[in-house]
Each structure stands twice: as C-alpha cells, then as structure tokens.
C-alpha cells in the first residue's frame, strides 16, 4: 500500500535540547495513525516538520512521496489539512465568514460550509460571532474549517482536548466517517481511549524517541496478563490462568451462582505506555 507519510531517522535539535531522536515511521494511505505521548515529547514538532513549518536537523520526511520542503505550493497545500492547538479564528467575524474565507482559499463550494458544520454539530450556529464561542465550539469550528476541502491527509494535534465527552464522540464519529471515505489521518493525542477508538496504528513517543509502534489490538494482546478475573458475590476476587484447566473451576462458581462478574485483564494503551516508558501521559 502507498505511503502517505514516510519518516526516516528524523532528528530535531533546539539549542542543546534534542526534541526528536532518530524517529522513523510510515503512515499508509487510508490509515489513522496515532502519535501518542505526553506534553513535550515531540508530537507537535513532528507535525510542524511534516507540514513544512519547521526544518528538521537531520533525517528524511516525505509526505505524498515528496520531501516536505516541496509542500509549500498551493497544489500540495490543497491536499492536506492541519488543526493544531494554536490554530486561530477571526474573533470579530461569524463562523460562516471564517469558513467562507477558507472555502474561497481552497476553491471549494460554499455548500461545503454547511456540510462541514453539520459534521461537527454546529449547523445551527453559522451566524454566531466567533468571539462568543466556548473553547470547545472554537475547536469544532477549526475542525470544520479543515474538513471543508476534504483533504487527502489530515494532521490533527489534540483535536478533542477541549471538548466534552458528547462532542468528542460526535467528532470521533465524523473522523471515522472521513477515514472511511479515504482520508488518511495523522493524530497526536495523549487521550489513549481516543487513540484506541480511532487508530489503526499507534506510535509511543517519549522524550523524542519512538519507543513502540504497532496496532492497538496487537499491543494489547502482547501486553495483556494471561488471566481471567472473577468477582464473586461475597466480595472476593479471583484470578485464574487463561487456560482450559481453569474452565472447570469457573463453571463450578457459575453453577453455584456465586459469580458477580467475569473479566479478562487486558491493559489499556495508557497502561502499556506507562509500562514501556515509565511515564504517565499528561
């Protein structure tokens, strides 16, 4: 499958601080790739390099098969979209006026404004002045702005960090739909549930180093504890090996109607991150 992003031995040094150290990964067409790490781990630096806003110190970064230095043309910029945590809107203008500017810049029809606003659950707010929006609504307008031109590749830097659970879910569904339609998504987040829900592949970035890269399902399989947990009605909790030999014992508890709950001990991506890096995701 075609690579949308190809990063080989990428390095970025700010003064004496090494922000990225020998980072390598590929993002295939149609994939939702999660770049996970705590604040200051190098996620935003990577997005800046991949979108041509920053030059790497060493290594290769290619987007659409071309070096990122070639991304500074209108033709390339029409093919990708970016939402970062410091993207801004024109506060004195309405949501519609903000989106109309970008619809004109990208050469898309004005009808797309309504469609993009519907996708972020803001269809009825288009005449509202941006200055009157909450942080979460502003974030949704920024997402709508990025969806206007249906980019082939979408860079999202913490897209739901300011949103409540209901709106996060709405955005997640919208992103899944966009991905189904063929958009490749490069997502940075420290929300492991979000990554688990959306990403087909994740990379753990810690202090500028990619420490793990795999499918969430594979990671959970690799790091899970091979036990079955039983919570009994008398309050006791038992852990039995995930083997056929445990079946008889479990059956006995069930037949005596002693079982409150049965569960497997599958780690979350957050648990795996802590185990691999020794750091919490904050």
């Amino acid at each position: 499958m075609e690579n949308m992003i190809e990063v080989i031995s990428l390095e970025k040094i700010f003064g004496k601080k090494q922000a990225l150290n020998n980072v390598s990964f590929q993002v295939k067409k149609g994939e939702t790739f999660g770049f996970l790490g705590p604040s200051g781990s190098g996620k935003t630096t990577t997005i800046k390099i991949l979108t041509g806003q920053m030059r790497p110190t060493a290594g290769t970064a290619k987007v659409f098969g071309e070096p990122v230095s070639k991304l500074n043309t209108p033709e390339y910029r029409k093919r990708f979209g970016v939402v970062t945590d410091n993207s801004g809107l024109y506060a004195r203008l309405t949501i519609y006026d903000n989106l109309k500017l970008y619809a004109d810049l990208y050469g898309t029809s004005l009808q797309r404004i309504d469609e993009a606003l519907e996708a972020v659950n803001l269809g009825s707010e288009k005449k509202t002045q941006v200055a009157k929006l909450s942080k979460g609504m502003t974030q949704r307008v920024l997402l709508a702005r990025t969806l206007l031109h249906k980019p082939e590749l979408l860079f999202l830097d913490e897209p739901t960090s300011a949103l409540d659970p209901a709106n996060s879910k709405h955005i997640h569904n919208g992103l899944k739909e966009l991905n189904r339609q063929g958009t490749t998504i490069f997502l940075t987040t420290h929300d492991m549930e979000e990554a688990d829900h959306l990403c087909s592949q994740v990379a753990f970035l810690n202090k500028g180093v990619v420490q793990l890269l795999d499918e969430p399902k594979q990671l959970k399989k690799q790091y899970r504890e091979e036990v079955i947990g039983l919570e009994l009605k008398d309050g006791r909790e038992l852990e039995l090996p995930l083997q056929s030999s445990s079946a008889e014992e479990i059956q006995q508890y069930i037949s005596r109607e002693m079982v409150e709950r049965i569960y497997t001990k599958e780690p979350t991506l957050g648990d795996i991150f802590v185990e691999v890096t020794g750091r919490e995701l904050v």
Binding site: R77, K78, G88, L89, Y102, L105, Y106
Partner: peptide, 9 residues
Amino acid sequence: TLRGLMLSP
C-alpha cells in the same frame, strides 16, 4: 490566524 493562512493554498 496568520499560520492558518500560511498553511492554506
């Protein structure tokens, strides 16, 4: 907002 314009076409 200038960054947004710079990243647009």
